[in-house]
Design a binder for these strands. Sequence first.
DNA 1: AGGCTGTCTCGATGTCTGTCGAATCAAACG
DNA 2: CGTTTGATTCGACAGACATCGAGACAGCCT
Lengths: 125, 125
Amino acid sequence: MSKQPAVLTLADLNAAEPCCTPLAERRIPAETAAVLAPAFKALGDPVRLQLMSMIASAPDGEICVCDLTPAFELSGPTISHHLRTLREAGLVDADRRGTWVYYRARTGVLRQLATLLAVEVLPTS
Amino acid sequence: MSKQPAVLTLADLNAAEPCCTPLAERRIPAETAAVLAPAFKALGDPVRLQLMSMIASAPDGEICVCDLTPAFELSGPTISHHLRTLREAGLVDADRRGTWVYYRARTGVLRQLATLLAVEVLPTS
DNA sequence: AGGCTGTCTCGATGTCTGTCGAATCAAACG
DNA sequence: CGTTTGATTCGACAGACATCGAGACAGCCT
């Protein structure tokens, strides 16, 4: 299951080193796009973007579902569905401790995405 | 139509100054999420991510549709549809000059998105 | 054990999205 | 002009998605 795959996987995205060069530097290959697109797709919903922000900015690095759900006017199952989407996109990790489930951001992945979108500042145009 | 709206708009995203604080710094408000999510959504498709990269990394800052279409095994209308999506998300601008249409990246918007995803590096944990 | 609370899964439903072929529009060229 | 070439729009269709209520599951507490 962890025998260095031929293609890039989501697990690789949490590494310290950048997986890819910035979007604007050179054309990204199809395989890379296929791996990264789902992460952007997961962030492409207002509710999930807010959830991601709440999780990533949580004071202790993690936040309880019980604090996330009441922040939206949506049913519990719907929030759970969005959290699962973020999980499957590799953006967050879930961890059950007793009654409550805590979510924490995979900062490595966020950093990779930020690097990918980074744009050179032009030298005085 | 352009009388300084109460809420953030896509046009603001191309400004030089950052529109928002990073995701992980503080929770982003619902209105901000509603404006930014469509941009991530547009990047959430492998074809569009590659298109975006091809446009952003074009040597002259712009690239012809006639160079984009043959790079994929997709019909012309389908590529056109994806380009429209990128356009409506505010990520690219289109410009017809004679027979050909050229696309260029709105680097300001890309920069905003990168800033939003930026993550602080922890001080030796 | 039995009940309670928090979270997730399942099934259903209406909407949105990716894709294509055909038709249309825009500009160049005979 | 008519024709050709490049790009978009239109109409259609299969598949994916957001949302919900009902039910299942996991831990607490008495």
